[in-house]
Design a protein around this nucleic acid. Sequence first.
DNA 1: ATGTCC
Length: 463
Amino acid sequence: MNGRQLQKLGVPDECHREAITAIQFAISSKATDSKRIKTTIKQILETPETYLADEHFGRFAQALIDEREFVRPAPVKYETWGRDGIDQQSHYQMQQACGVPVAVAGALMPDAHVGYGLPIGGVLACENAVIPYAVGVDIACRMKMSVLDIAPDAMDSEFNRVKEALEGGTRFGVGGEYKNPMSHDVMDADWTITRITREKKDRAWKQLGTSGSGNHFAEFGQLTLAERDEELGLDAGKYVALLSHSGSRGAGAAVCSTYSSIAQAALPKRYEDLGRLAWLDLDSEAGQEYWAAMNLMGDYAAANHDVIHRQVSKLLGSHIIAGVENHHNFAWKETHGGKEVIVHRKGATPAAEGELGVIPGSMADPAFVVRGKGNPGSLGSASHGAGRQMSRTKAKEKYSWKAVKNDLEKKGVRVLSAGADEVPGAYKDIRQVMNEQADLVDIVARFDPRIVKMCDDGSKAED
DNA sequence: ATGTCC
């Protein structure tokens, strides 16, 4: 008897394996034959309780009862920051994520918006399991800020030199790569830990020092500290800083899709609707592979920013005197409520007590260097930006890039290239978002963008 | 956010 025949008889998919085992056992021990088996199965389906002690069909009967009694665990509760600015669809996604059977806690950040699987701005803690799409496509998408030893007025008086350093120090575009790859220790790491990292190593090497597309950027701006910060090692004052937003590029995306496909194929039938929220048990082979690959992508993304900063500062003939950096698409083993859990932050900044991070606004609005407060409700997290208030398509319809560019120049922000879908008006107000998460982070310093480089989408930044 | 084979 095959799966199709079992299905026709009304045997639930979840019990097919037990049914087939039982039938084979019963036929081989001559307790039944292929002519009578249909009738037997029908009888068991009617009253499984009476077959529990049956030598051949007991386990099948138990599986049927378990299946009938199964109820999904209720979704775990999650706290939301900035409730008014978050759409219903993001809440729907977060609720569904909280219904994943391995989920133990969740939180939604004030910049939340819809994503694949877990919303962007979503934080989800799971027990001994990892969800590739709760880390995100761009594994270890992250921020890095370097404070340079040059005077703030250089961004005006030596604009061309600064501009050339920015343009020469990184590269944008989906397939963006270098013909002659940069050198970095991360390429000496073991990339054979998984098939996909082994296959993508060469491309990853060529993509070292690149910025990608979408909301990624590299920019110069003025960093302002109202008072000295010991950890940063900076006195109160104004500085020039380089801020970059990039991730693990093609290699990270390949790791995500490879392991989410494995997870989705293994999704139990009763959880089929969870789709991209499919998880991998950390004790499974695939789970361990993903974890190792994710961590390699973390090191690689950090190296990617390292190369960008090294190149830009070298071209400028400057030195790095201080810095802050953090992943905002990643999963960590952490202890919350006395229990070790896997905390996924997808578009969320780690904000444990005392932890430094960078939260960007938009090209016209400040980024903030923040220090975490370790709020247990957000699982020690904060937003990773202002969050979109408008889709990319809508932003392109509503705004004329030329007008926006002129407006920005009046505000003292020079955009070397960008897409019309990244206009400041497409984002929520970062100051309001910061107010909404005042119980998650303290502001340490403010960074005002001055010279901005993003991926050109075709709608020219140059007139 | 990425990159083009089911």
